[in-house]
Design a protein around this nucleic acid. Structure first.
Length: 230
DNA sequence: ACCCAGGTGGCCC
DNA sequence: GGGCCACATGGG
């Protein structure tokens, strides 16, 4: 390294943003669920759907004892579809839950057995299940199986492209790599940081990055190129 | 009456 | 490797 350092490293900037968000919003405590299996069910149900709608369905599933893997595995598809209706895309999602259960059967419906395996194999297995794409797979890995992968979503892309870190059309894998590459040097426990960071980005986007953002109160407004323009 | 929400698979070029 | 579309409910 020679001369003056004019720009802070991505690692430093990402850490600073994390600290700022944590300070502004507090610990988010994601993922809210009683069991790891409930996280998996929620991850599938929340695909492109308001979490509020999913909460209702989770409560109903709980009441019907369907958050027990064996019970969920046995319920007929049409009946499951009807129960999860408020979560939207209910036919698709019922099929997706069944597809996951078919895969989960190999682990004797035991999340603990899944957790014993490595990230790479688990991730490719999850991606091979019909209805589980990159974001759902990574949400399951991080929040249900405690594997340190950084979950990125539409919000993450919007927020960090507006701040000029990445192109607005960056693909999922490149965006994920950006975070994992630049966050793994931090001294924080990675798992907890990954869990909280994703949740905080979500909170930031919900509060401040709608199509008509209220930039004046955004905690990271100085970094955002959007700044109230159009 | 719109528009969006913690995406994914299928099909097309 | 992408671009476009169906999938569906509930809340602003």
């Amino acid at each position: 390294m020679q001369g003056k350092k004019l720009l802070k490293s991505y690692t430093t900037q990402l850490k600073a943003i994390y600290t700022t968000l944590l300070d502004a919003f507090g610990q988010q405590g994601w993922w809210p669920a009683k069991t790891r299996f409930e996280v998996i069910v929620g991850a599938i149900l929340t695909q492109n759907t308001n979490w509020k709608n999913v909460e209702k369905v989770i409560a109903e599933l709980d009441k019907l004892k369907l958050l027990r893997p064996r019970t969920l595995d046995r319920i007929p598809l049409p009946r499951l579809a009807k129960i999860i209706r408020p979560a939207g895309y209910y036919n698709q999602k019922a099929k997706k839950l069944k597809a996951f259960m078919e895969h989960f059967k190999q682990y004797d419906f035991d999340v603990g057995k899944m957790m014993k395996r490595g990230i790479t194999v688990l991730r490719s297995e999850l991606l091979s299940v019909w209805g589980i794409g990159p974001e759902t797979a990574d949400s399951i890995l991080l929040y249900a199986l405690d594997k340190p992968v950084f979950v990125v979503d539409a919000y993450t892309r919007r927020v960090f492209s507006r701040m000029g870190f990445v192109d607005k059309d960056i693909n999922y894998e490149d965006l994920r790599a950006f975070f994992e590459k630049n966050l793994d040097k931090t001294r924080d426990p990675r798992l907890k940081t990954f869990k909280e960071y994703h949740a905080l980005i979500d909170e930031l986007a919900k509060r401040h990055c709608k199509t008509r953002p209220e930039c004046s109160s955004c905690p990271v407004r100085r970094l955002c190129s959007y700044n109230g323009k159009t």
